[in-house]
Design a protein around this nucleic acid. Sequence first.
DNA 1: AGGGGTGTCTTGATCGGTCAAGAAACAATC
DNA 2: GATTGTTTCTTGACCGATCAAGACACCCCT
Lengths: 367, 367
Amino acid sequence: MTGPDAKKSPTLRDVARAAGVSRTTVSNAFNRPDQLSGAARDRILDIARGLGYHGPNPMARKLRTGRIGAIGVVFGDTLPYAFSDHAAILFLHGVGRACEAAGCSLLIIPTTDQGAAQTTVREALVDGFIVYTTPSEDVVSQVFDRNLPVVTVDRSGVPGVTAVRVDDRAGARSIAEHVIDHGHRRLAIIVPRLSAMGEHSGFVDRARRAAISYAVCADRIGGYLDAAAAAGLDPLTIPIDERPDNHEDAGRAAALNLLSLDPQPTAILAMTDRMALGALRAAREMGLRVPEDVSIAGFDDLPAAAEAAPPLTTVRQPLVEKGEQAAELLFGTRRHTGLHIIETELVVRRSTSPLSAQQSAMPLAGD
Amino acid sequence: MTGPDAKKSPTLRDVARAAGVSRTTVSNAFNRPDQLSGAARDRILDIARGLGYHGPNPMARKLRTGRIGAIGVVFGDTLPYAFSDHAAILFLHGVGRACEAAGCSLLIIPTTDQGAAQTTVREALVDGFIVYTTPSEDVVSQVFDRNLPVVTVDRSGVPGVTAVRVDDRAGARSIAEHVIDHGHRRLAIIVPRLSAMGEHSGFVDRARRAAISYAVCADRIGGYLDAAAAAGLDPLTIPIDERPDNHEDAGRAAALNLLSLDPQPTAILAMTDRMALGALRAAREMGLRVPEDVSIAGFDDLPAAAEAAPPLTTVRQPLVEKGEQAAELLFGTRRHTGLHIIETELVVRRSTSPLSAQQSAMPLAGD
DNA sequence: AGGGGTGTCTTGATCGGTCAAGAAACAATC
DNA sequence: GATTGTTTCTTGACCGATCAAGACACCCCT
């Protein structure tokens, strides 16, 4: 990517020389019209144009003046993934709103290539960072090393760092309670990748349940199991299926696996709407009706959840507001407290229903 | 947004002084480990840490070294809008893919506030720009003024500027032909804002048809009308309804307007899928069946088009690839030619069908 | 005539680094 | 012992601007 002008472009000094004035005067011609006579200004601007000088180099200028005017969002996943995940996009939407209000641009920093990510973060030209989801710890510590303002989102807190969290545990509990209140006892859970280390597909065993490294996963599963325990169910008997990615296809595969258990679960709690949508598809493929044969619940309340067939019962988290708040905390627009917790809301639609007589006729696991 | 360290942070010079070495040596300790003894390096790094020095200031460093490592995408709309428009997101997805490959970050530059946009563009720390959709001409010329590499997307070409265009005209013609081949003669067209100047809602009169400032609009409408003319229809008799925004709601309003014409159109060509989806809703609300009572076609082939009820006949443009190509052209990965034209593909689904006997029984406009 | 004010422009320092060239110390080679 | 080479570190210029302070001319006023 070489500039249209391969020959290096002229500087303030060149213009000054050509115009027979000092650099400062040229600088003023561009930035402080009141500091020189109109005639001189016009002449200088003309000469600059003639020389192919396109205004003060922003980097040099900002080095001197300080503020950069952009904030960085660090994604755990690849950039393409970020742009294909609706939750991420809604989050960015919110961040964008706050940026706009603050007159700030938005730098999206990919961190796929572990090696490159280090230097990308190290050299990012930003006034602060938002760390979204789960970049590797290396990258996160690199971010902290920059010693710029940071807001983390959906990550377990680090002392001294402003964090935005959703009350995932309460949200998960509420939707599990909803299902349990409807009489369901044979629950099953679908989750995306639980730990930064190791990729796993299939049932989650005890060891892996104990080694969850992502805060969101830990909290949501915790919430589900809290509700189960409160209802007298043994958490360890509730099957959890993990898939490496948060995708429709992954949710489908997990649901196919869970729904072929005997006895079949009567309610599936998917940790994300994306996976829940895949689970809906799996049920359809197996000839099961939702919610008559199996209730399916999601989490997030993506726009697609309301439009699914049937519309998805889920837990709403205000994704746009989450992004907006994170950015506002970074800008200092919003009062700084260590931890910002965002509440969720249970959204009951039609993918869940009370346990039917037919369903309850089947043997209860563990009986 | 003040840094955690309000007292200004130490510089290379401070570290050098504390360590009793020169600035260059400290610089080398960070960037060129082979240029000094391991012992000295460790000692310097230790001292730096002790002083709260967090690595070389990226701005100063880049001022010296040149390359910034980010490209800017300039949006015509507000940032939040960009993140709510699927076409834009898919485009960004593609850009992100290319950025990732090039080890580059992505700066998203909002241009809502006309005044601020000028300086935002002027000061954006990027190595090049992608101009997407239709920022105001002021902003575009500001971008050109930076004299950095630029690729424009979906805009009519400017001499010397690499442009990515979709063959909108051919795509529009193909879908109009598809509908005409199915026997439809009473066509109607739905379009978003046609011109940067003036906001208009409702039928587009002759004067406004002649004053379209957005290249995409001009081409798509041109394609529709080409097909109509080729089939012996008078383009001027085909009603065009314009709405200021490319939104479902806008499409709905336009369709409601068009479908209350007498005689009623039998086929609606919406210039975007978003508007087509709104038109589907309008038809449903009016108790019209699609496609039995009215055929509706879109443009873009967003993911939602395939999932609509009924699935939308549309023109597919490869949005992700468009973004990727634009970025690759900017990086120089792809061979530079002035104009890159991307082909479209007609995707026939179920929202269009042959004219029914009942439909053709109605009087033909102009007979 | 001298003091104060204003408008226009210049000087030299500075922002925080990197880079090319060279110096000092020491070892290896002929 | 002179030459060459390495390793390690320093110097001064430079990247392209901004900024504080001051110089100079000009006008107004008493």
